[in-house]
C-alpha cells in the first residue's frame, strides 16, 4: 500500500469531516442565536421549554444523539432521510442541534454581558430594539465571544469523527479499514490532518481577534 494511496483515501475521508463541519456551522450559528433569544425570553413558557431542551441536548452524549436521529424516525414513523447520503443528513441534523445548543449559551453569555447602558443609549437616541441590537450590540457580542467560539470550532472538527458510529465514512473510519488489514500507521497519521486544520483555525481566529482589536468593549 503506497503512501499516496493511503493519503488520497484519507483525504476523501477528511473531506467528509470538513463537509460536516461546514454544514454544522452554517446552520448551527444562526439557530444558536434563535435558541439564545428563546432562553432569554421574558415569556416564561418559551424560556422554560428552550432551557429544558438545551439541558437535554447538552446533558446527553452526542454519540447517542447521532443514533437517535438516525434510527428513531425510521423505527417509529417509518421515515427515511431523503437524498443520496442519508447518513450524512442524519449526522448533520444531530450536529446542528447539538452545536446550536452550545452556541446558544455562548451567545447568551455574550449578550448578557453587554452593559444595560448601551441599550439605554440606543433607546434615548430613538432607535428601535432591533436597530439597537444589530447596530450597537451585535459587534460587541461578537468581539466578546470570539475566544469561546474558537474553542467550539476546534472541538467540532474533532467531534465530526463521531459520525462514523452511523457509518459516515470519515477519516478515522477510513483509517480503521487500513488497520483491519494490518496497516496501523494511517490511524495515527490522521492526527496530522486535524492538527493542520486546527492550526489554520487558530490563525484565522487570531486574525479576527486582531481585526476587532480597534475598540474596547
Amino acid at each position: 500500500m503506497s503512501f499516496s494511496t493511503v493519503n488520497s483515501e484519507l483525504f476523501i475521508g477528511f473531506f467528509e469531516n470538513v463537509k460536516l463541519f461546514g454544514i454544522t456551522l452554517l446552520f448551527a450559528l444562526p439557530l444558536g442565536l434563535i435558541i439564545a433569544f428563546g432562553s432569554m425570553s421574558k415569556f416564561s413558557p418559551v424560556k422554560l421549554l428552550t432551557r429544558g431542551f438545551v439541558w437535554i441536548i447538552r446533558g446527553t452524549p452526542l454519540m447517542l444523539q447521532l443514533f437517535v436521529v438516525f434510527y428513531v424516525p425510521g423505527l417509529l414513523f417509518d421515515i427515511r432521510f431523503p437524498g443520496s447520503n442519508p447518513r450524512m443528513t442524519a449526522a448533520a441534523i444531530a450536529f446542528v442541534i447539538n452545536y446550536a445548543c452550545y452556541f446558544s449559551e455562548i451567545y447568551r453569555g455574550g449578550i448578557e454581558s453587554i452593559p444595560k447602558g448601551q441599550y439605554e443609549a440606543g433607546q434615548v437616541l430613538g432607535m428601535t430594539k432591533t436597530q439597537v441590537f444589530f447596530k450597537v450590540i451585535l459587534l460587541q457580542v461578537i468581539k466578546r465571544i470570539v475566544p469561546p467560539m474558537s474553542n467550539e470550532f476546534m472541538t467540532l472538527i474533532k467531534d465530526t469523527s463521531l459520525a462514523r458510529v452511523i457509518a459516515v465514512a470519515d477519516i478515522i473510519m477510513v483509517a480503521g479499514k487500513f488497520s483491519a488489514r494490518g496497516i496501523i500507521w494511517p490511524l495515527f497519521y490522521t492526527a496530522l490532518f486535524f492538527l493542520v486544520f486546527c492550526g489554520l483555525m487558530t490563525v484565522i481566529f487570531g486574525r479576527i481577534e486582531k481585526r476587532l482589536d480597534y475598540f474596547k468593549a
Partner: peptide, 22 residues
C-alpha cells in the same frame, strides 16, 4: 414608533457616557 418619536423631544446625557465603543 410614535412613542419613540415623542421621546426624541428629550435628549439625555448619561453619567457614564454610554458611547458606542465600535
Amino acid at each position: 414608533k410614535q412613542q419613540l418619536e415623542k421621546q426624541l423631544k428629550i435628549g439625555l446625557v448619561f453619567q457614564d457616557f454610554n458611547l458606542f465603543p465600535q
